[in-house]
Lab assay of single mutants.
Amino acid sequence: SSYVCVECNFLTKRYDALSEHNLKYHPGEENFKLTMVKRNNQTIFEQTIN
């Protein structure tokens, strides 16, 4: 599966890399929402900020 930060167009295969991205680029933000999307037999988790 892949993880994408929709706000930044940041894409990674690792959830911990997304967490690091959030700490660096969205410090103090807590209203993240992950949406699971299936595309071409791949699972993509799209992160948006509410």
Rank of each mutant, 00 (worst) to 15 (best):
E29F: 04
I49K: 11
N31Q: 07
E46H: 15
T12A: 08
E29V: 12
F45H: 15
L34P: 01
L18W: 04
F45E: 12
G28V: 09
Y3G: 02
C5P: 00
V4N: 05
N40W: 02
K38R: 09
E20D: 14
I44W: 07
H21K: 00
T48K: 05
N41H: 10
C8R: 00
N22A: 02
M36N: 15
Q47F: 02
V37L: 08
C8L: 00
Y3H: 06
E46C: 01
N9W: 03
Y3I: 04
V6K: 03
D16Q: 12
C8S: 01
P27F: 10
R14P: 14
C5T: 01
N50I: 03
H21T: 00
H21A: 01
I44E: 11
H21M: 00
E30A: 14
Q42C: 07
K24P: 00
Q42K: 15
Y15I: 03
N40I: 05
C8D: 15
C8I: 01
T48E: 07
L18M: 10
S2A: 04
S1H: 00
V6S: 05
P27H: 07
L11V: 08
K13P: 15
E29L: 06
Y15G: 08
L18R: 01
I49H: 03
I49A: 11
N31D: 14
S2E: 04
L23Y: 06
N22P: 02
T43G: 10
V6P: 03
R39L: 04
E46A: 02
S2Y: 07
N9R: 10
Y25E: 15
T48H: 06
E29P: 04
G28T: 08
V4S: 13
R14H: 12
V4W: 11
N40L: 05
T48C: 10
L18P: 01
Q47R: 02
V37E: 13
K13F: 12
F32Q: 04
V37A: 09
T12I: 09
K24A: 12
K33D: 08
K24D: 12
S1N: 06
T12K: 02
N22W: 00
F10Y: 04
T35C: 09
K33R: 08
F45Y: 15
G28H: 12
M36G: 15
R39H: 14
F45V: 08
I49T: 09
H26T: 01
T12V: 11
F45K: 12
N9F: 11
Q47H: 06
L34C: 03
V6M: 05
Q47K: 02
L23W: 12
Y15E: 15
K13T: 15
Y3R: 02
K24Y: 12
Y15K: 12
K24H: 05
L34E: 14
L23P: 01
Q47M: 02
L11G: 09
G28N: 04
L23F: 11
K24G: 09
E30I: 09
H21F: 00
T12P: 03
E30V: 11
V6E: 03
Q42E: 13
F32Y: 13
N22D: 05
N22K: 02
